[in-house]
Design a protein around this nucleic acid. Sequence first.
DNA 1: GATGAATGAGGCTTCATTCAT
DNA 2: GATGAATGAAGCCTCATTCAT
Lengths: 217, 217, 217, 217
Amino acid sequence: MRVDQHLQGAYTGHESMHGARKVDLSVTSNKQKEIALAAVKLFEQKGYHATSVQDIADEVGLQKGSLYHYIHSKEDLLLQIAHEAITQFNEQLERILAEKDLSAREKLVRAIRNHLTVSISNLQTTTVLLREAFSLGENQHRVIQELTDKYLDLWTQILEEGKARGEFRIDHPKLAALAILGACNWVYRWYKTSGELGAEEVARVFSDIFLDGVTAR
Amino acid sequence: MRVDQHLQGAYTGHESMHGARKVDLSVTSNKQKEIALAAVKLFEQKGYHATSVQDIADEVGLQKGSLYHYIHSKEDLLLQIAHEAITQFNEQLERILAEKDLSAREKLVRAIRNHLTVSISNLQTTTVLLREAFSLGENQHRVIQELTDKYLDLWTQILEEGKARGEFRIDHPKLAALAILGACNWVYRWYKTSGELGAEEVARVFSDIFLDGVTAR
Amino acid sequence: MRVDQHLQGAYTGHESMHGARKVDLSVTSNKQKEIALAAVKLFEQKGYHATSVQDIADEVGLQKGSLYHYIHSKEDLLLQIAHEAITQFNEQLERILAEKDLSAREKLVRAIRNHLTVSISNLQTTTVLLREAFSLGENQHRVIQELTDKYLDLWTQILEEGKARGEFRIDHPKLAALAILGACNWVYRWYKTSGELGAEEVARVFSDIFLDGVTAR
Amino acid sequence: MRVDQHLQGAYTGHESMHGARKVDLSVTSNKQKEIALAAVKLFEQKGYHATSVQDIADEVGLQKGSLYHYIHSKEDLLLQIAHEAITQFNEQLERILAEKDLSAREKLVRAIRNHLTVSISNLQTTTVLLREAFSLGENQHRVIQELTDKYLDLWTQILEEGKARGEFRIDHPKLAALAILGACNWVYRWYKTSGELGAEEVARVFSDIFLDGVTAR
DNA sequence: GATGAATGAGGCTTCATTCAT
DNA sequence: GATGAATGAAGCCTCATTCAT
């Protein structure tokens, strides 16, 4: 799904912005990627609002005006970044959900591991998604919100499945999903890449807690 | 603790800014409270950056210039709000930790319940604290960060205590604290006041999950 | 009638832009008048597009940003100017039409004289109205267009009246109105204030031509 | 007459711009014509300033950069259009003036008919000439202005001739010319192609008015 | 002839803050 | 205490034009 299907008249950023006669192959030019990366870096470091278009231009070694060959607007840039990030989360989780012969428990473990792995290996992007998407205008924000809601739904499905199969003993699957997802999403707030903790380790600890709780037996 | 003890030369906002003859009694005038409330409301609704000083002035029925009789700067206003919010969390949790004759398990339950109660009954303020504090300049942000770090420490203490007493079976008390606190902090992202779920209910579900996990036995 | 009644959310420029709690007395502050005059002068000399907000600010000795205490936007400034201009034309012509005991012939003569007098004594404003209004955005332009259409209607009424009374021998009152009004509107294109020709003289010549034609008898 | 005879060093647009080996035969390539047509259409619809070079490129299916193989500058394009338009008016009127054995009255009738016919059948071009030429820079504008002045002279000659021959009873031939030409030039402001009124009809009505006036006898 | 990347100047507007009244 | 005029810096974006490929 392309971002602009949700938007009125926004450029896609996936096709050449000038002429727009080329077929959309979701080809993102190198320069576009470079710009997106620069933006991610800066948005993560300084925040969306504190990052000026000039900053981004400087980072990629272009004139401010030249940036606009590749982006539609600063806001659109943020949208692209957030969209790609949440999409990756969604796609991966869908893949896990689609697997047959997997217990709900196992799905949950994998969901946690997957989320943390993706989250931590793309920490900057995840940070931008979770911290800056709110800076989007209403319409653009809605796009991300919907995808984010869907992500929650997928988690909820796992918990409902576990409940239905008798694997999980929970009253509110959705609330449980919110607890787990909340804990996972919070990671961008404290995880430092430099740290000694790997995503795998965090995932193991989180899984243990969410599956069996903290209580000694 | 006063905010400005962490800052170099910032006005406090707690003492009369003009004349400075009054003793600092942390007296906040009605107007100041009114302004802070307006700011909380607007910061929560539109975000800190999207809220102009004019917006705040309009909300309290003052002219932009008149606001500056009561606040030092827009940023300071945000700092006050965030500071007060995190301080409340800290104070309450300290009170819980200080209670004698309470099992770690019970302390954890209370900590969760307390956090969710405060969080949900001051949803706007909590949102501003958790979502907008990042917009503070470096120095001001550090103030909040330190208090926030301290809050995490308090949670960690509970978990360490539980581990030491053999109540909790955990390898990484801090990581456990981060999981639990993350889940709790995430609440501002999805909780709707209008909803049918009370803070108590959420607290119960969360406690169950964190204490005993999701697995059926 | 106030301009903004036709517009969605445009500031009026007639009331204080800040606070907007004052009653609208169509009070235009001196500064606002000064700015409007400067804009008229510059728009007439260089054209709307070639005039920058900076130019206007320079002309009134204000900083660019300070202008925005008095105007809503550059376009709004143009709208105000054009609106006031066409309104004056309309009001005067309505007054002429309303007079009893006046032959159509006499009304036409007065309409011509009035138009030329107003036009020539406010040559800059008239020029802006007739030459630059097209630079307005669609919505704003429509406002002016409607008033302009109304002005044509008033002229047409005179000619229809003359026809009905047997004073005028014309098949297409509206076409006649367009001819006469066109000739009168064209004046801003060639009239030079410095010239020796007074508005009265031009009016006399025009009246003669339109009433009796050019043919010798 | 070539446009650039009036300009210092401007490219003509009539000769091949690259290589300049070709003789100037006022050869306008198909592409150039296509571009000019696109420009006329857009300038008429949106105005010169609101039309970007990109718009024109889009209209002809070229890249922005490629346009510059055919035009010297956006402004030059406008100049060409306006120049061609006013030249046509001039040439036709000169032809009428040159006819022997024609009364002044008949010349005037033909001048009016000719102007309206040309004007209405090239309504877009005429609109651009009369509405947008002012957007030209000083030097370029002067070129058009001179041709325009000349056009007025031609009209004036008709009226002077009529006066000299006793056909017309007018004091100010030039003023009369301005009245008549003004009315005729105004046509682009109200004429709608879709309308039921043909140029011939308008011409008849206008001629009647200017020759015999509006008064019933 | 065509492309499209790149330029760089300039445009309009917003806004937190100050200060004289 | 209150006002509102003024500031000035900064921000995002547009666009005509050039030029290497």
